[in-house]
Design a binder for these strands. Structure first.
Lengths: 207, 207, 207, 207
DNA sequence: GATGAATGAGTATTCATTCAT
DNA sequence: TATGAATGAATACTCATTCAT
């Protein structure tokens, strides 16, 4: 059937736009990317981006929500309360870290939004809030409700330890020997995070 | 003599531009801020921005370098090697934290650049590298040279714990009770960081 | 159907821009003409100029190349080597002169570039070189290869005699009686050029 | 007397501006040169240009008039009616050519104005008119008052032969072997012009 | 005579978006 | 579903010019 794009091809274009937008936004930030850039990278007509996504803002929101959906489902799977505390926390760290590895643009996308203009702050807030609730839940009975050792602080600290590694990677590559996002480097970082959790848990127990 | 620009007013305009740029860039990011915005916020003619700073890029670089200079001098003051390890690290944490408190746009400015297009990545790289060297120096003899406990990882982790609190603040304000940047909340965060350092040091010693 | 752009109207806009640019550049020179001027003269939106031509420089280059193409084909048609020398040279003079009459902006456009900043000098150079080769070819066997009577000098002299009449026209109109670009005045100039060729050829033969 | 610029230094600045303007206008054209460029090239403060010359336009006019004054005096000296026709015309050609050689920007400055916007057309007109009257005077009794052989046409032809060599020089340098403005090349061109005058005079006599 | 600061108007160019087809 | 053409608003930047000192 020449001339008539098959159904799979149709969704293809919409998806290709989404993927291109994801990469470009992640690399360069919302403002630095033009719809023309996205269309070109996706190999589609510029007007088609608007046909499918309405506006540049909406497209960006779609990219974000898409991440949050898979983000949430990734973490939810690791939240079952079985086993001892260490195992449970270890599973969370792994799930979070796996997600970051699989979605490399995510960290930068989120940090840009948090540090930048508050245009899409609501989405971010929802996500952060959810993450914090989970941290609180995971540390229940271990961390106090208030003060410097509260789960709230642990959340910020762990989030930073988790996410900043991926955003710093590009800037630190020339300084460190080797690529911080290579497999062995990632394994090392994962081990660091596990160690950090262990140390903090011990500290909390001692308190 | 109102209306007549006194001598102190002269450098004033250049400074007002710098301050306005600092705030706006910090709040909204490089791309989202126009020179017109900056000029308006500084209360000066748009062309004057170019008269004093040459280009938007140069102005941004000036804002960054200005931070880095005071950042460096702030940390250098805390680097003397006297006293036991805990005291020394404690001084570093305080110095860093004090700097963040005093320069609220800094964290967001840096995170934007690190997560974003990297146009001014070189400046950031210099600064990050310097910070990392200091961390390595401060942990000398305590942290191994390689592996998950290396100073390199400690640097990323602490940097995240330090800086992300300030960038997350705006997004988390509605969730937490009270302003994360209020005096008492800041004191609490500072205590958390000191505690974190203690816990990590203990973990390193035990390793 | 007024108001509805017919198919012929489509390429119309791009062409109207080209024509407007031609006239304005010819009259006022590259720098003195703004894209706004061109758009206004063409009756189109300013951004459309960039949509079709990319940049002001490219638009100017298009105007020039367009001339050169027709210039070349006009002269090529007059270059066949049949008949006696006088006839052949006469045909060349007529072809060149016809072209100048039909493309009134051309002379000024070229002189501006030659005398001016030379931004588009390459195009001019190509064209001039080609013209010179033709002159050399046409005078082969008659003019020496070197010295004050070389074809090279004849080329500059004839080119000046040909082109300057059209550029001087505007400045000399008030002095001369009547319009130098009116039909009878042009016929007179054409006769002058034929006479000049005759006189020069005779001089070359006598040498 | 340190700190106090001597009188000669004062006129120095005004002159340096004039010279810089001359060169830059000649090279790049009126529009392409900014007052800042001129001031920088002259090594003076930008505002001083306005102090001395009032406006960019006025400065340009000054550059032109300055040329015309020396142009006129150069030619007037060659206009005495003594000696036979050949000698008289030869002296004119030499005087004109000498002037062009000594004032290399002149040709381009004039051609720019003639071909470009008519902003300073009046000055040019005056000068051209004067030149034409002289040509008519020099050819009195030889050339008819009207028709293709009129002095009017001779003027345009000779003017073109004279001036275009200097404007074409830059564009043709790569094509010709050697620099068209080198001493020997100039001598050759001068010989060409003398030959041309001779040939034309002969043709006029024969008519 | 000389200058640094200041400005309003203008420049080329880009962009998100719309729309007829 | 897909696209080429079209546009109004915005952007960074430049310029000739003025003026207080």
């Amino acid at each position: 059937m020449p001339g008539k794009p098959s159904e799979s091809k149709r969704k293809d274009k919409s998806l290709r736009i989404l993927v291109a937008a994801d990469e470009l936004f992640g690399e360069q930030g919302y403002d630095a990317v033009s719809v023309r850039d996205i269309a070109r990278a996706a190999g589609v007509n510029k007007a088609l981006v608007f046909y499918y996504f309405g506006s540049k803002e909406d497209l960006f929101a779609r990219v974000l929500t898409r991440y949050y959906e898979s983000h949430r489902s990734a973490l939810e799977g690791a939240l079952d309360a079985s086993g001892p505390l260490d195992k449970r926390l270890g599973r969370l760290v792994d799930a979070y870290f796996d997600f970051m590895v699989a979605n490399r643009s995510f960290a930068r996308l989120v940090q840009q939004q948090i540090a930048g203009p508050g245009t899409h702050l609501e989405l971010i807030q929802q996500n952060l809030t959810e993450l914090e609730r989970w941290t609180e839940h995971a540390l229940e009975g271990l961390a106090p409700n208030d003060g410097p050792l509260a789960a709230r602080h642990m959340f910020v600290t762990f989030s930073g330890a988790m996410i900043n590694y991926f955003t710093y990677a590009r800037a630190l590559r020339p300084v460190w020997g080797g690529d911080p996002l290579a497999d062995d480097a990632l394994a090392e970082r994962r081990a660091h995070l596990h160690w950090l959790v262990g140390v903090v848990v011990q500290g909390l127990k001692a308190a």
